[in-house]
Each structure stands twice: as structure tokens, then as C-alpha cells.
Simulated scan of single mutants.
Amino acid sequence: MTTPAESTGTPGHQPETGLRADAERNRERILAAARRLYAAQGLCVSMAAVAREADVGKATLSRRFATREDLVTAVFADRMDGYAAAVTEALADPDAWHGFTGYIQAVCAMQAADRGFADVLTMTFPAAKALEARRAGAYEGFLRLIDRAKDTGHLRADFVPEDLVILLMANAGVVAATGDDAPDAWRRLVGHMLRSYATPGAPLPPPAGAPAPTALYRAMVRLSRTGGDVS
């Protein structure tokens, strides 16, 4: 016959199902904290800062995510899926030039929405194989997108894949520098870059308006106070 003590288990001992539930809750708290910090500050955030934001110990964080690359992969897996899906959608566009310009705008919008993802797109994580596999797949799709856009005669013949990397680096800098002061400044940059990629007479999206001078001034003041550090 089972006694009450036997049915409830050893005093102070948490059943395995409870331990699993606690572990999952901690994992979700860590991911939510990392998403908030990365989105606001970029990938410069330390693992210790993530642990504090999640209100867990460093040991708990390291059990869930042994390395920074593990945490970054978990946080940005869905965004990298979206990045890859943007290429697929662009390749499916019957108007190859429209697909190309739409893809450039979509990827830069992803950067603008999340500073952490802006960093992810301009950095490599050799140890994060799943993340890098998604990036490689998106890159292969972009190569096909370039060829299709050039076949329309609207994309300059001297455009190379590295031009996208340069744009993403520049856009990440603009997003970080302007912040909440001029959050749409990146659209102006992307518009100018699309014009530089296009052949004369190529159809282009309407240009975005320039940020208000006062907004850019506030961004410049903020940068001067931080010594130009946008991290």
C-alpha cells in the first residue's frame, strides 16, 4: 500500500516533470531577455547582462546556452528563416527587377526593426552552424536573383554580391546612429543605393523623404555624447 509520504515523493525533491518545466521557463526567460537587449543594443550585450535581465544565475544561463553563438542562434533562428524566405519570395516574383528591389528593401527593413539582427547580418558565427547554413542558403538565392535582375537590363552589369554586404554594413550603421531620433533615415539610404545600382531609366520605388534636420541633429548630439560609439 502506498503511503502519503511515498505518493508525494521525498521532501524537498522536485519531480522530474517539474524540473523540466522550470528549465523550459528559464530558457524562455533567457530568450526573451536576450531578444530585448539585442534589439535595443545590438550583439555587444554580454552574457552576464542577459542573465541579469532574465533574472537567472550565470550557471543557469550557461546550462541552457553554453556559448554566445548558441544563444544568438536560438534568438535569431526565426529571423534568419525570414531572411531566407525573403529571397525565395523575390525569386518567385515574375518581374525579376521588382523582386530584386523588393528584396533589398525587405532585408534592410529587417535590420531597421532589430539592431541585433542588423549585427547578425554583418557578422559571421562559424560555430553556429545552423545560423550559417541559413545564411549560405540565402546567399545562393541572392546570386540567382542578381543574374535574373541583370537579365532585365535594369541592374548594372558591374553590381556584385559584395555590394549587398557593403549596403548592409552601411545600413546597420545608419540604424544604430539615428536610433529613435530618425528611425526612417535608413529608407533614404536604401533609396539612394538602389538608384546607384540601377541602369538609366530603370523603374525604381518612390524615394523616401529626408529626415527632419532637427531629428538628425538630435542623433548627432547623442553620438557626440557617446564619443561616436553606436553600440
Rank of each mutant, 00 (worst) to 15 (best):
R187G: 03
R188F: 13
Q111M: 13
S7Y: 06
G18Q: 14
A92Y: 04
V190E: 06
P200F: 07
T8C: 05
M123P: 01
V56W: 03
D147C: 04
Q105T: 13
A118Q: 09
R79F: 00
A54E: 07
P213V: 06
A106H: 09
Y197N: 00
G153I: 12
A176M: 11
F142E: 02
A170I: 02
A51D: 06
M123A: 10
M220T: 12
G228Y: 09
G153L: 15
F159D: 00
A157V: 07
A66W: 02
V165Q: 14
C44Q: 08
T214Q: 10
R135W: 01
R25G: 02
P15G: 11
D180Y: 10
E24L: 13
A113L: 09
P211G: 14
M169T: 11
A77H: 15
M123S: 13
T124F: 00
T2P: 11
T67N: 10
A177I: 08
T73I: 05
I166L: 11
H13N: 09
A5V: 12
G57T: 15
P207N: 04
Q111C: 13
K150T: 05
T60G: 02
P203K: 05
L121W: 00
L37K: 04
R134S: 10
A128E: 08
A86F: 04
M169N: 10
T101L: 02
A138E: 01
T88L: 03
S196E: 05
L43V: 10
L194W: 02
A128L: 12
P207G: 12
A185M: 10
A59I: 03
A106K: 13
P207V: 11
A54V: 06
F76G: 05
A138S: 11
D55R: 09
L61K: 06
R144V: 00
A74C: 06
Y38R: 00
T101M: 01
G141V: 09
A170L: 07
L71E: 11
A90H: 02
A212E: 15
Y197S: 01
A23S: 15
M47I: 05
A113D: 14
T178C: 15
V45K: 06
R135L: 14
E69A: 15
L61A: 02
G57H: 14
G99W: 00
V165S: 14
F125Y: 15
A170Y: 00
G201I: 10
A92H: 11
R144G: 01
A59F: 00
A198L: 05
R27Y: 06
D229S: 12
E53S: 13
M80P: 04
M80F: 15
P206S: 12
V160E: 12
M169A: 11
A92T: 10
T2I: 10
R25T: 07
M193P: 01
A130K: 15
T101N: 01
E162F: 11
A138I: 03
V75A: 14
T199L: 03
Y103E: 06
W186G: 08
A133K: 12
S7N: 03
R225V: 03
V72S: 08
R52I: 07
V72G: 04
E132W: 09
A34N: 12
D55N: 08
A176D: 13
A202N: 04
E69G: 14
W97C: 07
E16N: 09
H13L: 13
A84N: 05
I166V: 11
L31D: 08
L194I: 03
A90W: 01
C108P: 02
A33F: 08
E69W: 08
Y139G: 11
T17G: 07
L167E: 07
R144C: 00
L204H: 04
R25M: 04
